[in-house]
Each structure stands twice: as structure tokens, then as C-alpha cells.
């Protein structure tokens, strides 16, 4: 089974294309693939508690997508504690994920 890392750098408030990427992530997860969504840059804005895009995070989790947010991007934006269920990681972790055998990485 392939692993997929989808790296979302875009802000859902700014880019309607985030919906496309979300559908793709959930579509891959629905095929029984292991999927990690790694949020970085303005992509982490959806994880701020109270954001209208928190529901998006909940939907990912329902589809068994693991949601990870880049710690630096969170700190840079003053988000001290992201929405429930979002793991905080750093680039060391991303590199380890990228190098796991059979992993496919897709940036958006």
C-alpha cells in the first residue's frame, strides 16, 4: 500500500483550489491508502481554533487522514495550539516521512 503525503501550502481563505486538493486527499484516503496531510506556510491558517475551516480538518480525520501542521508556520502566525487532532511537527519529521519507502509526495 502506497503512502501519500499531501503538502498543503495554500490558505483556504485565499485559494478556492484548496477544495480541489481536499477532495483529492479524501479520494486517495477512500481508496484505502495511508494519507498524511502536512500543512505548511499559510496552509496552517485552517488550524486556528475558531476558524470556519476547522470543519475541513474534522472531515479529513473522518476520512482517516492524519493532519500534521508545521510548527514553525504555526508559531510564525501566532497559533500556539492548533485545532484538536492536528499534530505539530517540523521539517525533520517531514524528511523522515518523505524517505519512508513507497511514499508519494505531492505539493499544493
Amino acid at each position: 500500500m502506497a503512502k501519500h503525503i499531501f503538502i498543503e501550502s495554500r490558505d483556504p481563505f485565499d485559494s478556492a483550489d484548496v477544495d480541489y486538493f481536499s477532495e483529492l486527499v479524501q479520494g486517495i484516503a477512500n481508496r484505502g491508502q495511508e494519507v498524511i496531510l502536512f500543512l505548511v506556510q499559510n496552509g496552517v491558517l485552517a488550524t486556528r481554533r475558531g476558524s470556519k475551516h476547522n470543519e475541513r480538518i474534522t472531515q479529513f480525520m473522518k476520512h482517516k487522514v492524519k493532519v500534521v501542521a508545521d510548527g514553525f508556520s504555526l508559531r510564525e502566525r501566532g497559533i500556539s495550539k492548533p485545532f484538536d487532532g492536528v499534530e505539530v511537527a517540523d521539517m525533520d519529521h517531514l524528511v523522515k516521512l518523505l524517505l519512508e519507502p513507497g511514499t508519494k509526495a505531492i505539493w499544493h
Binding site: Y20, L24, G27, I28, R31, Q33, K104, I106
Partner: peptide
């Protein structure tokens, strides 16, 4: 179709977006 994109992605070990 959009709904078939996951399958297309599965068919390619490398996906460069």
C-alpha cells in the same frame, strides 16, 4: 473526471504537481 483522479495518481509512482 475529477472522481477518477485518485486512480490516475495511483497509477503513477511519481506525481509532480
Amino acid at each position: 473526471s475529477r472522481r477518477d483522479l485518485p486512480e490516475l495518481i495511483d497509477q503513477h509512482p511519481q506525481v509532480w504537481h
